[in-house]
Amino acid sequence: MKHPEYNEFAKFCLHELIELQDDFKSRYDIDGYEDWFYNQSNGLLTFSTEEDQINFRYLLAGTFSKRSNTWKWSWDNENIMPEVKKEVSSVKNFGYQSEFEKLTNGCFESDEEEAWELTAITARLTKGIGVYRPASEDLLTFMVIQEFVDNETAQAIKDKYVECGAHEYRRRAFVCNHLNYRDKIGFEESFETYENMQLEDDDDFQDWCNECEKVRQKEDGWNDNSMAFADIKVICEQCYFDMKELNLGYR
């Protein structure tokens, strides 16, 4: 049963969202694009028509299943990547402070109308500029758009990600060509790393084996000779940490 104050708050947020969405669509005309694509790894939502495109950062508030008639918050969904759900935890924290159970229960029976209310609350609490719900038959995904990203910046973000046969689309990492998934041959990093860490714009995950480190020290750093010996290759972030686990057993 809804808390009376929650019911009033949810309706207020939904009314606010209607005005917010009108302004958002008027400003960016997202309905004028033919295609859409979102990526949980880099947190970008892209609308495009041929070579013309527009990009936004987004959060994934949650999903509504038409089959089970349930809402599931993104922070309670292990299949949703951290980049697009970490800030949604602020909604849960607000729910605890206000004693609004709908904001603290990870999954519960619901309907599509309420899913829009929950998305509206998320938009208000995370200062969203609009919302988007991609077309889908069974599982509806509700996104809160955070900010516009110019195409140059968006491309720079996308360039930091690679397709991986094992882990789909993840951040890129650079390792020497000697590292593999069988042998413990050392793991020398350019800086200490951990999974899902935030990187500075100019940083990448970088690692090389013990033999590469010997050559690097002999050459007094990275130069043509040490780089040629390392023969750097690009892998995804998850592959990087799988190799790190093999060599260091850090998990």
Rank of each mutant, 00 (worst) to 15 (best):
S90Q: 10
I145V: 03
T46A: 11
S98P: 00
W71F: 11
G130P: 04
F47M: 06
W116L: 15
L125D: 07
L103G: 10
F100G: 06
K72F: 06
E195S: 05
A228I: 06
E213M: 11
I145F: 07
E113D: 09
C239A: 14
L125R: 12
G221Y: 06
R133K: 06
A156W: 00
T193V: 13
A115D: 12
V131M: 03
V144K: 10
I235T: 03
E113Q: 10
Q238E: 11
H167Q: 00
R124T: 03
E87I: 05
A115T: 08
L44E: 03
K158Q: 14
F191W: 08
N180I: 01
M243F: 11
T141L: 04
D201T: 07
H15E: 07
N7G: 07
G249E: 14
M227V: 11
C239S: 15
C13M: 00
K85C: 03
E188A: 10
N93V: 03
G62E: 09
Y161W: 07
L118A: 13
S190H: 12
Y194N: 11
E152H: 00
L103Y: 07
V215I: 14
D220S: 13
S48H: 08
L179P: 03
D220W: 09
F37G: 13
E112N: 02
Q97G: 06
E213S: 12
D35Y: 09
D22E: 10
